[in-house]
Design a binder for these strands. Structure first.
Length: 264
DNA sequence: ATCGGTACCTGCACGC
DNA sequence: TGCGTGCAGGTACCGA
């Protein structure tokens, strides 16, 4: 479900509620979401204090005082709550000295991991899209021979962009999703960089999008969906030129674009 | 090293 | 009503 803006929204909301709290109990209900041994994992958590909470790409990372990390990935359908009751899709429950953390995930594509060090696959992610300088953005893009849509989705290129914001950024930049990344001219690369920053910044300001199931830790919904210009608008008129929005597959992901406004 | 296809999951909307 | 199909914001892994 969530991309950078949604994860950021959730992280900002739960961080002050979790920072400084001590973990009293940990319960896990799904071996797929948490692959390690549940008892051993609980043992790594109980009695520990959460030092701080931050987002890294689409991961939410809880740093434990004295070392250790809880890395949470929401997959497509993961949700975090700081209050409420466990339900049929609850996969992890942390009981704190004040409050709780509840992790729900219907499709079980999410992950809840506890490790002594920050996992390599998180440490290895590409730069944050809102922090990367244009020069680095351009240099990284120039090395990629894949389609630009696929590159935007690659977390080793930039961390945090997903299917919605990739489509929306490409539309705003006027770039065809099937264009080869390394062949984009400099002015178009500049437009793409600007569009990525813009679309993510706007979405964060609005509290993340809401396609179907996104609910933040307070159960509120984001409202960015009303602003989607191409995503899931197949057949509807382009907001700029009226041409019907088209849908194609890029690396098996639905990809929406205006065939007139977005050139290769 | 990089790229594209596939696997991993469940639920929902849709047409028949 | 029930069933089959296609779709869904995720990453990991494999062979080319």
């Amino acid at each position: 479900m969530p991309e950078l803006p949604e994860v950021e929204t959730i992280a900002r909301l739960i961080a002050p509620r979790l920072a400084g709290r001590k973990i009293l109990a940990a319960e896990f209900r799904c071996g797929f979401v948490m692959r390690a041994d549940p008892d051993r994992t609980a043992g790594m958590l109980i009695g520990r204090k959460i030092a701080r909470v931050h987002r890294r790409g689409k991961f939410i990372v809880l740093e434990l005082e004295g070392g250790g990390f809880v890395s949470i990935h929401l997959g497509m359908t993961g949700r975090l709550f700081t209050k409420g009751d466990p339900g049929p899709y609850t996969r992890a429950i942390l009981t704190l000295d004040r409050g709780m953390l509840l992790f729900d995930d219907t499709r079980r594509l999410g992950r809840f991991e506890v490790t002594p060090e920050l996992p390599a696959r998180i440490a290895r992610l590409g730069p944050e899209p809102l922090e990367v300088e244009f020069a680095e953005f351009a240099a990284r893009l120039a090395k990629r021979k894949a389609r630009v849509k696929a590159v935007l989705l690659n977390q080793m290129f930039l961390r945090g962009i997903g299917n919605i914001y990739a489509d929306e950024a490409l539309f705003r930049a006027g770039i065809h999703p099937l264009a080869i990344a390394s062949r984009l001219r400099k002015d178009r690369v500049r437009r793409l960089h600007k569009a990525v920053v813009q679309v993510l910044t706007e979405a964060i300001a609005k509290g993340g999008s809401s396609v179907s199931s996104y609910v933040d830790a307070d159960g509120r919904r984001g409202f960015f969906q009303v602003e989607h210009r191409v995503y899931r608008r197949t057949g509807e008129p382009c907001v700029t030129c009226g041409t019907p929005i088209r849908r194609v597959l890029v690396t098996q992901r639905g990809t929406h674009f205006c065939p007139r406004c977005q050139k290769r």
